[in-house]
Amino acid sequence: MTVVMEARDIRRHYAVGGGLFRPKGVVKSVDGVSFTLRVGQTLAVVGESGCGKSTLARVATMLEPPTSGALLIEGAPATPAAGRQVQMVFQNPYGSLNPRKTVGSILMEPLAINRRGDGPAREAAARAMMAKVGLRPEQFARYPHMFSGGQRQRIAIARALMLGPKVVVADEPVSALDVSIQAQVLNLLMDLQDEFQLAYLFISHDLGVVRHIARDVMVMYLGRPVEFGPKEQVFAWPRHPYTRMLLAATPSVDPRHRKQSITVRGELPSPLNPPAGCAFASRCPHADNRCRNERPEPRDFGGVKVACHYAETIG
């Protein structure tokens, strides 16, 4: 399988503060993330708000340059021209579509900007894409406010596919939708993946959705991956205490299995002032002095990379 996107030790830091009475600070939103994305596969990035998953999406789509590290697209360093191979679907379909444009012009815009084809060809391409994502032809001239949330997300997906990308970065594409609509959009994403051999970088906080759609899972905590590997292994034998906590906190839809065993405590520490050692130490039930002082590096456990000093004893 060919690799379409590779990230090598990507970091994205932001300078903050630096006012008259405030010291300057650095927020390390993404701090050393590497992955490879192959044709037709889905890599899911999960974590809580503030863990850097959306920043990673912005770097992967070249909306922001990484502070350090390299992003390769089909083996070559990412350039704006190669950027057309990577498109994005945003979280909120109510905010990501221009209310003043019709569906047709929203879909034709990427082609016009990139000077592909002439007017009739663009319209034909837009209509063909509408059919693919399950929109009706008579909706071509309608405005976004005339659509429900699920249909809007279909428009956003169609727009992302207009330039024939290899990679689609989807930042929480179904979290704003109701359950029944969410299932429709997930099915659509999977059908399109089969048809166009798309690679997805799928960003989500919903482990149920991730479990369904992903091949590989990266669990992030405070800018760093803490566990990264094939979905089956990560869900069946979570080795990092944070992954275990996330799984324990996710409500199960089986009332006979109410989980009482693991108590979840604490909140994400401030990214302005991250702990010296393991970022998770303040919430971890297994943490000791070593965790508080020495940052664990990712280590390989049969294909799963885990950043924990005690992954052997816990897992």
């Binding site: 359950v179 029944s180 149920g208």
Partner: peptide, 15 residues
């Protein structure tokens, strides 16, 4: 329609 209930099946039943 819940992904958790559809384990194994590739397509989710929809409404």
């Amino acid at each position: 329609a819940l992904p958790e209930r559809a384990m194994g099946a590739s397509r989710l039943p929809t409404i």
